[in-house]
Every structure is written in C-alpha cells, then in structure tokens.
Amino acid sequence: MATKKTFEQSMERLNIIVDLLEKNEQPLDETIKLFEEGLGLVQECDKQLKGFEKKIDELASKKVEE
C-alpha cells in the first residue's frame, strides 16, 4: 500500500514528472506511466486543496460568529 504523500511531496514529484515529460527523452511506455502518475497526483492535489479550502471556510465562519 502506498504511503499518502503531503501536498508538498506530491507537488515536488509532479514537477519532476513535468520536467521529465518536457525533455521527451523517455521511451513511450515510460512516458505513459509518468503521465498516468502525474494525472493521479493532480487529482490528489486537487482533492487536498478542496479540503484545505473547506477547512479555511469553516475556520473563517467560526471567527465571524465569535
């Protein structure tokens, strides 16, 4: 089972993948694997960002109520 990465770890890995894909030096099968991994990371980062946004909204609404 894969260890869940922090947002920062996911973004760091995503940047590495983008750099590798931009160089276009990988064989096609490796390129597809990297692209697939990148898509998963984008989805995970999006999910985490939405969670962070929800938490900030909750905290902001608590502050307004006080």
Score class of each variant (00 low, 15 high):
1 M>V: 11
2 A>I: 07
3 T>M: 03
3 T>L: 04
4 K>F: 04
5 K>G: 02
6 T>E: 05
6 T>I: 03
6 T>V: 02
7 F>H: 12
7 F>S: 04
9 Q>D: 13
10 S>M: 15
10 S>F: 06
10 S>V: 01
13 R>Y: 02
13 R>F: 01
14 L>A: 10
15 N>A: 03
15 N>T: 01
19 D>Q: 12
19 D>W: 07
20 L>A: 05
20 L>S: 04
21 L>Y: 02
21 L>C: 01
22 E>C: 09
22 E>A: 11
24 N>C: 04
25 E>A: 05
26 Q>I: 01
26 Q>C: 04
26 Q>F: 02
26 Q>M: 10
27 P>R: 11
27 P>I: 05
28 L>R: 15
28 L>Y: 13
29 D>W: 00
30 E>A: 14
32 I>E: 08
32 I>H: 06
33 K>S: 07
34 L>D: 01
36 E>D: 09
38 G>A: 04
38 G>L: 02
39 L>G: 13
39 L>C: 11
39 L>P: 00
40 G>S: 07
41 L>A: 02
41 L>S: 01
42 V>P: 00
43 Q>G: 08
44 E>Y: 03
44 E>S: 08
45 C>W: 00
46 D>E: 12
46 D>G: 07
47 K>M: 15
47 K>T: 15
48 Q>S: 07
49 L>W: 09
49 L>Q: 13
50 K>S: 09
50 K>N: 10
51 G>M: 05
54 K>Q: 11
56 I>C: 03
56 I>N: 05
56 I>P: 00
58 E>D: 09
60 A>I: 03
60 A>D: 08
62 K>V: 04
62 K>A: 10
64 V>F: 13
66 E>H: 12
66 E>S: 12
66 E>A: 12
66 E>N: 14
66 E>D: 13
